[in-house]
């Protein structure tokens, strides 16, 4: 073998890596920074970050007190984004979030008062507590990234990122989000309890609110478009598309699944994996990315039937992944 040829190839691989290295570093910095307040949840932080970088909204399904607010607040803080939190209740109206026009006595005309949604990171706490009317108003705004009031359209700030939470346990007096609306969220994650050591550290540490205040801004908002461009440049090869297609096809033909993955869902999966690959300094997506993100991106978009309804989300996703071969054979 010609040694020079080999060197060329190596340099090619390396150059790919170098190109990503600089951008990639801040991912590490960001995760570390948020990790200071949300202990032991680096993987979840990464997922949330990936969701944001992929321009998607995040649904966190977890019990109260698991750090949902801390995570969203920290994310906004380190990214240097504005942050609003809305606690959803059943008597809430769309105007409470979107804003409303109020008659101004001095100017003798109606002026639009922007609601809580006019922010860059919105924490929609317990989204399933409010009526479908309010839910859909929010979800529409999430999709369109704009609010229309009395014929005037108001653009939402860029970037715009919703972190919604819901409590999976107490379903009394809730309005569960329908599947079509769950589809608007790029990922659904749950944080879960910290492990024993982390929890001890947590007990010893101070008030998270104080720690939040100490967080540094690690990334200016103007860098985000640059990152998005880099993510778009991540390569998705034919082999990988084949694999994703096989997975999607399986969810549509499996005996356990009533409604499989929609094309939008499949595209969301690709988008998320590209971001994930970018965050892991790769210029291309590998099947591991797909498998890692599959549960977060896909599980809330499919409807199971029959005996599979007894399975946990995790087991179901495992079953799907186990049934589909990674390499065409």
């Amino acid at each position: 073998m010609d040694p020079r040829l080999r060197e060329d190839d190596d340099s090619q691989i390396n150059s790919n890596k170098n190109k990503e290295a600089s951008v990639r570093k801040f991912v590490e910095v960001l995760v570390n920074e948020i990790g200071r307040v949300l202990l032991g949840k680096d993987e979840k932080i990464k997922l949330a970050l990936a969701c944001l970088l992929a321009d998607g909204h995040l649904l966190i399904e977890d019990l109260p007190g698991m750090g949902k607010t801390t995570l969203s607040h920290a994310l906004a803080k380190v990214l240097g984004l504005s942050y609003n939190r809305v606690q959803f209740t059943s008597d809430m109206l769309p105007a409470d979030i979107l804003g409303l026009s109020i008659f101004d006595q001095q100017q003798q005309k109606f002026t639009f008062h922007k609601g809580a949604i006019f922010t860059q990171v919105l924490l929609a706490d317990e989204i399933n507590r409010t009526t479908p009317k309010t839910q859909s108003a929010l979800l529409e705004a999430m999709e369109e990234r704009q609010v229309t009031n009395e014929g005037t359209t108001y653009e939402l700030p860029q970037p715009f990122f919703v972190i919604a939470t819901q409590n999976p346990m107490s379903q009394m007096g809730t309005y569960p989000l329908p599947e079509s609306q769950l589809d608007r969220f790029l990922m659904r994650i749950s944080l879960g309890y910290p492990d024993a050591d982390t929890e001890k550290l947590l007990f010893k540490g101070g008030d998270p609110r104080d720690q939040l205040a100490q967080l540094r801004v690690c990334l200016t908002a103007d860098k985000i478009p640059e990152i998005k461009r880099a993510i778009n440049a991540v390569k998705v090869s034919d082999s990988l598309v084949d694999y994703v297609q096989r997975l999607v096809h399986f969810t549509r033909t499996s005996d356990d699944i009533l409604v499989g993955l929609s094309p939008r869902g499949a595209m969301a999966l690709i988008k998320a994996t590209k971001t994930w690959a970018f965050m892991h300094e790769r210029a291309y997506v590998v099947p591991e990315d797909v498998q890692y993100l599959f549960a977060s991106v896909v599980a809330h978009r499919i409807i199971v039937k029959g005996a599979a309804q007894q399975l946990s989300q995790e087991a179901l996703v495992k079953k799907i992944l186990a049934a589909v071969s990674v390499v065409a054979s």
Binding site: P287, A328, S329
Partner: peptide, 28 residues
């Protein structure tokens, strides 16, 4: 099959000779 699959299958065959076989769901 695409060429990459063929190469991977060949690798699998060689590893199979020492008693390793990939699960379908296992990434290379």
């Amino acid at each position: 099959l695409p060429e990459t699959s063929l190469i991977y299958l060949q690798l699998c065959k060689q590893l199979n000779a020492c008693g390793f076989s990939p699960l379908a769901s296992e990434t290379p």
